[in-house]
Design a protein around this nucleic acid. Structure first.
Length: 722
DNA sequence: TATCCGACCTTTTTT
DNA sequence: AGGTCGGATA
């Protein structure tokens, strides 16, 4: 292939980035500016100009999907497989490193990867073992705490509790959790990164080897990197390497899970020779859509700065519809989609994007009612399903008896008469003797410290696992999986579950057997792993992308977060209301508010041809009524690219009588939702929530001056106003 | 020991 | 409103 092919079809800024001399570079790539294209072409450029072999290139992404796409596009461009090149997620690459250097990393050879759910259960076990009050120390929060520490690269001993007894407890849980993980050879997601970082930091020889191998490192979505990922990259890049980082600070929407946009600013300080290139020409959206996006995001004070432009058409204006309520909103959206479809646009050109997952239901109902095919993205993934995790736990336990978390998961699934008493005894002894649950069970069987019944049940369980494990490492993965599913009793167990759910679970178990038989252990990235470890790692790290079946036409429904990186002809951005978007929990903090705005920016820039925004005057949420104000983001959009949609027939007339009456009903106190009231101290406001009856009735009022207050009707002495 | 009921909570999600 | 989780109950 000719080098010119690599530079062909690129704009000036893209070409500059692709053909820049080897060195550190930060590419500020706006939405739709050909970010992946630049990454892929940069790699091809290295190879075609003989600056690098595929063997010397490392490309890192955040999702498996992005990694797969990148690899695919590179191979298309090079017209050959890119053997020897590492393309993967941070976690996938960390896993690969740790499998190859498990000894130096201080891990057992076949360490297990825990997913979120495994981690949650383990944290919970630790809290119980430490006899802490679960209501005071919630497992969720502790899990979050532990991950936040790891994301910062902190081990328990590094954390300064500075005499804070509360924090000391958190650290104690972290410590106990880590001890438990280490004993069972369990590695959580953050631990993968932490160990990979420590490996490079502490093993100079290993680091030197990889530094001399990967002279060319490329990172996608750089704005999403956390402290640890960036530190790891810096170690690997060292002084002589070249780090090509592509990102967009305006699309940083994951700070709440540790991503640090500051890494982009930091990059230029850490790599003083680094060049900065901006990709601002947009190939996706119309000029009107870009104008809206640019104007909105300009309200964020802390940006690197960038303005998208296109040489394409202005396009249609953005439609804005103020719905009567959420049903009217969904009806409006679905009517529009039907109309568009009649004009010849397939359903798959349409996406409905929302802030919170709870908003999908109303849309789904309306779509179902209208008989429009749709798909909700971002539900439970294949390998996260209970039945799949059960089967994998059997597999793990049969291979590695000491795996406590698998033991806990399946000891009584299906129910086999092993109850709380037995479990307590098992845990108690395991803790006392500092042994695994399996060993604890063996001892109990020997000492007969439980009633006959329980002992029998326990013995049957151990025998089952032992028999299951005979020679299981030596047979094909598919056969192993089949044996596990067939002998575990899971099929019968799930057959008893009523409804279609049980049937679906059994089908999933069948699919798991298929997945195991078809799993390709010969892939290059698994070269340092045993087949079983490779498969289990795959199950944890690639929890089964919710992939659309090919050749089917459907409307896509997803959260704004899930929409990042995607594009659609027609985008419906729904629920643009204060409290919902920006979300209540972000509205009080300027930093979080900026992130909400970036989220809105992401949403707007998903649209190619047409953007429609909706908000409702009245919305039922978590069982109570809200009369939200329009989102502040609407006021930040330029008026000259917006068309306010007024329907010929007023929405209220479309409502059924039942809906009208239910919405008009006033409470027993003569107060209505949305009613303006006066309070002696707080002044004027609007009732936004009504709860309870008579003397117990409480209202939430949004006061113009004093903000939101909860008041008890019996004491508040509210007067109606306006 | 298994099942049922009610209290509680409710942003975003990848690995 | 709807799902989850833990405790109470049969």
């Amino acid at each position: 292939m000719d080098v010119s092919t690599v530079l062909h079809d690129l704009n000036e800024a893209q070409r500059e980035a692709v053909a820049a001399p080897t060195g550190n570079m930060l590419v500020l790539a706006g939405a739709g500016s050909g970010k992946t294209r630049v990454l892929v072409h940069r790699i091809a450029w290295y190879i075609e100009t003989d600056q690098a072999m595929p063997y010397g290139i490392l490309a890192v992404t955040f999702t498996n999907k992005a990694a797969a796409e990148m690899r695919g596009r590179i191979e298309v461009l090079l017209k050959k497989p890119a053997g020897g090149m590492w393309v993967g997620t941070f976690h996938g690459i960390a896993n690969r490193l740790l499998r190859a250097h498990w000894q130096e990393a201080g891990l057992p050879e076949s360490f297990q990867i825990m997913d979120n759910d495994d981690q949650y259960r383990t944290v919970k076990r630790v809290i119980r073992a430490l006899e802490l009050d679960e209501t005071k120390y919630s497992p969720r929060e502790l899990q979050w705490f532990i991950n936040a520490q790891k994301d910062e690269g902190l081990r328990p001993q590094h954390i300064n509790t500075s005499g804070d007894p509360e924090k000391a407890v958190l650290v104690r849980v972290y410590q106990a959790y880590q001890t438990l993980c280490d004993r069972g050879g369990m590695v959580d997601f953050a631990e993968l990164l932490l160990r990979a970082h420590e490996l490079f930091r502490d093993q100079k020889q290993i680091l030197a080897n990889y530094q001399s191998r990967f002279r060319h490192i490329l990172v996608d979505e750089f704005q999403d990197t956390n402290a640890l990922q960036y530190a790891w990259l810096r170690l690997l890049a060292g002084n002589g390497g070249s780090l090509f980082a592509v990102g967009d600070d305006d699309q940083s929407i994951y700070s709440w899970r540790g991503a640090q946009v500051e890494n982009m600013m930091q990059f230029q300080r850490n790599f003083v020779d680094a060049t900065l290139i901006r990709l601002e020409q947009n190939y996706r959206s119309t000029a009107n859509i870009l104008k809206a996006a640019n104007t909105l995001i300009a309200n964020n004070p802390s940006r690197l700065g960038k303005e998208l432009w296109t040489d394409g058409e202005a396009g249609e204006k953005i439609d804005l519809y103020n719905a009567y309520n959420e049903h009217d909103e969904s009806r409006f959206v679905i009517d529009r989609i039907s109309l568009s479809r009649m004009k010849g646009d397939p359903y798959c050109h349409h996406a409905i994007l929302y802030r919170t997952g709870a908003q999908s239901r109303i849309m789904e109902e309306a779509l179902m009612h209208a008989g429009i095919p749709y798909k909700v993205f971002g539900g439970m993934r294949f390998y996260e399903r209970a039945e799949i995790k059960d089967a994998l736990a059997y597999l793990r336990l049969s291979v590695f008896n000491e795996d406590d978390s698998s033991f806990e998961r399946i000891i009584n699934t299906p129910v086999r008469g092993i109850g709380q008493r037995t479990l307590d005894e098992l845990r108690e002894r395991a803790k006392r003797e500092n042994i695994s649950l399996w060993q604890s069970a063996l001892q109990i069987l020997q000492d007969k410290t439980l009633p006959e019944r329980a002992l029998n049940a326990l013995e049957r369980f151990l025998k089952l696992i032992l028999e299951m494990g005979v020679g299981i490492r030596d047979i094909h993965l598919g056969e192993a999986m089949e044996r596990v599913v067939k002998t575990s009793g899971l099929i019968d167990h799930y057959r008893k579950e009523k409804g279609e759910k049980g049937q679906a679970r059994i089908e999933n178990l069948d699919e798991l057997i298929t997945a195991a038989s078809e799993f390709d252990v010969s892939r290059e990235e698994y070269s340092d792993m045993e087949p079983m470890a490779a498969f289990l790692g795959h199950a944890a790290l690639e929890s089964g992308e919710t992939q659309a079946e090919a050749y089917t036409d459907f409307v896509s429904l997803m959260t704004l977060h899930a929409a990042k990186g995607l594009e659609f002809e027609d985008v419906y951005l729904v629920g643009l209301e204060e409290g919902l978007f920006p979300h209540q929990r972000s509205s009080n903090d300027p930093v979080q508010l900026e992130e909400e705005r970036r989220l809105c920016y992401v949403g707007i820039t998903r649209a190619r041809k047409k953007l429609t925004i909706t908000h409702a005057q009245h919305r039922r949420l978590h069982g109570s009524d809200y009369y939200p104000q329009a989102s502040r983001f609407l006021a930040e959009l330029p008026a000259n690219v917006i068309t306010e949609v007024r329907l010929g027939n007023h929405p209220a007339q479309v409502l059924s009588r039942k809906e009208q009456t239910s919405n008009m009903t006033s409470s027993s106190n003569g107060m209505n939702l949305g009613q303006r009231v006066v309070h002696a101290k707080f002044g004027e406001g609007v009732i936004i929530t009504l709860e309870g009856q008579g003397n117990h009735a409480r209202v939430q009022v949004n006061f113009e001056q004093a903000g939101r207050k909860w008041l008890v009707m019996a004491y508040a002495n509210l007067q109606t106003a306006g």
